[in-house]
Design a protein around this nucleic acid. Sequence first.
DNA 1: ATAAATGCAAAGGTTTTGCAAGCAG
DNA 2: CTGCTTGCAAAACCTTTGCATTTAT
Lengths: 132, 132
Amino acid sequence: MTARRSTRQRDVIARVLQDAPGPLGVTEVHACAQAELPRLGIATVYRTLKLLTEERRIHPVLLDGETLYETVGRGHHHHFSCTRCGRVFTLHTCPVTLPSSAVYPGGFVVEAHEVTLYGQCPECAARKTGAH
Amino acid sequence: MTARRSTRQRDVIARVLQDAPGPLGVTEVHACAQAELPRLGIATVYRTLKLLTEERRIHPVLLDGETLYETVGRGHHHHFSCTRCGRVFTLHTCPVTLPSSAVYPGGFVVEAHEVTLYGQCPECAARKTGAH
DNA sequence: ATAAATGCAAAGGTTTTGCAAGCAG
DNA sequence: CTGCTTGCAAAACCTTTGCATTTAT
């Protein structure tokens, strides 16, 4: 019943996300993919992102007021959002002390958690404070 | 140069957020405020929220794909988003182990962090699994 | 060949802006 | 009085949809 086809557009979009160092926004995905497919329309990007999400190959992250997408299967991780350049990176160290299934004071049953760290990425930090 | 005026609209909107148990979305703020100011326009809500944010009296939280606003000055805290009823609560216990100004592997300089816990709120948890 | 997928353009929502009228100072 | 604020409506944005054409199978 579901006859999903493999197309050049889908392959390119999936690869763009695979190769990214962190989650990307719709516009970024579009721009990166257009390097290979100049006629790629934004509607296809939206449709493909939705499709890949349904297939559980990528998943959306809400960060900085934007919906970003990243590939799944990179294990438990969190994000670092650079307050200077705005890029988002993936971190593999988890700073949260939470026994899974912890119950918080008040009776809140925790099933999952999401952490975002804000600050300066290595590149921006190297440029020193005040420098532009 | 900045001649900021005190108006009924601004007072009401600020109070709505003060009295809320957790962050509210634009529509919620509008609805609550309209209880007192029936002719309040949505544009004024947007403008006032931006204003209060610039004044650092409130600040935006990005949760569940929506931008919510909460008053500042409630100390360091995080949020709990109930996966059953969708309400967002404020938690005053921080599960993050982060010496302030920590530098993460790779050279990421952490200035702040945001944590969201997902699970069941006390009320929903009491209703037992499966119950509706 | 056949039907899914694409690109374009139009439609839907949400947030922002322009402007005359309404108020705070 | 003066000019910041407001409410309304139009504009700007972002995301989704409709449809003829292209393309994978």
